[in-house]
Design a protein around this nucleic acid. Sequence first.
DNA 1: ATATGTCTTTGACTTATGTCAAGAACGTAA
DNA 2: TTACGTTCTTGACATAAGTCAAAGACATAT
Lengths: 240, 240
Amino acid sequence: MVLIILKMSKKASEHISPVLNIPIFRNLPEPAGRMLDGILVRREFSRGENIFIEGSESTGFYIIMKGRVKVFKLSSDGKEQILHIVGSKELLGAVSAFAGNPYPAHADAMEKTKALFFPRKDFLALIKNEPSVVMNMMANLSMRLQYFTRMIEDLSLKEVPGRLAAYLLYLSRQPGYSETVEIDISRGQLASLLGTIPETLSRILRRMSEKGILEVSGRRIKLLKKKTLHDIVNGEKAGL
Amino acid sequence: MVLIILKMSKKASEHISPVLNIPIFRNLPEPAGRMLDGILVRREFSRGENIFIEGSESTGFYIIMKGRVKVFKLSSDGKEQILHIVGSKELLGAVSAFAGNPYPAHADAMEKTKALFFPRKDFLALIKNEPSVVMNMMANLSMRLQYFTRMIEDLSLKEVPGRLAAYLLYLSRQPGYSETVEIDISRGQLASLLGTIPETLSRILRRMSEKGILEVSGRRIKLLKKKTLHDIVNGEKAGL
DNA sequence: ATATGTCTTTGACTTATGTCAAGAACGTAA
DNA sequence: TTACGTTCTTGACATAAGTCAAAGACATAT
């Protein structure tokens, strides 16, 4: 039923299935693309809506088309640690779906989010016929592993100012930013991503402003002394 | 009994390439196994020897056959954080070799280690012909991702006693252990694995002994109050 | 056995960061 | 606008954990 709606929503003007633009489906032949159109289920989530919870059985995975999703763990006292933020064209819950394990974390939509759901059984059938999909997914997993490797390093080796500095410098290397970066998440969320609490983050931002390293105005932050930020990442105290 | 097993494994090797017992090569046809015998390079490392360093180019990956290898990061002041310990039948450096990235961490042999080296170019050739290898590797990567997810949670959500308790309980669930566990790494290494320093670990072990939660004698630790350990994992202070 | 080097433990001290509580700033809806 | 709820900031405080330094235990080799 949902499948029919999907099909109808696709205009004949599109001679190439748009799903073939999704990284893990790159290089697939066109017939496979048409087949995917019939398998993938469109789903929408509103801001703050839960997509899955930790421990629940994985029935498939999501390809995020629009919006952002936070994947996070909760401690026994309700504090959350964001593991990562999944954005457009990225996969959500793929590892669990592949391995057949329950989801290891919670996922909430951070804003209005559109996604395609890929049922596990259909996915397992697809990879039998199209091994290249597995190759693409492995590249995807590899990147995630490298990201996590780095995150473990950040969380365990550096103090909060170092983690913040690393994050700001990372943002400044993203396309469109250089001297000024726009933090696209709230202070509290950023604190969680850095493995700390809003109070601590707030204090550190103030101290960095006082030292003339940053200029903070809401979610817009100007990096005045990038060199000092690099030093902080490398463990320098920089008089904070 | 041991002799019989030994004999059988020797006999079997005359008919089936032993490499086909390695998880990622499971289900490969015998001809591929013989081909692998000609590709894999036997390498040995002595205790403490470096296998690769962070940032160096990845020319292939290792399959550990005997011994253990620690994969770790170094902070600017030389402090190390162990990411994981790779043991028998496990892969070392596979992500980098697959993605063609430099190694993201250092790897040192913790003891005399025997490994098979799989050159990157040969591996890329193999997966073209044998997609099932990629499936097996993806299962491997998935497990690693889940492990890292858990590790990030441990490092960021829990205090050191909680991480220690989680590790001890994890060991006690391993085959062969229940009330008493044998820590197979030195105090300093364990500290690094838990994201702390030997001094702190030492103090916490003492406090737990004083409270009658543990009984420590060298690398042998008796878990006297498992329930309390669980409470500590869940954030209870337990009067430490 | 003795000596040498490494690993581990302990104590005194410092510091980064979390907790608690209150006020300020901000956004949203009436 | 005002009022309300949320988020952010700030201060005083508590504490977990790191640093430094020294002593003790342990293992290895001579």
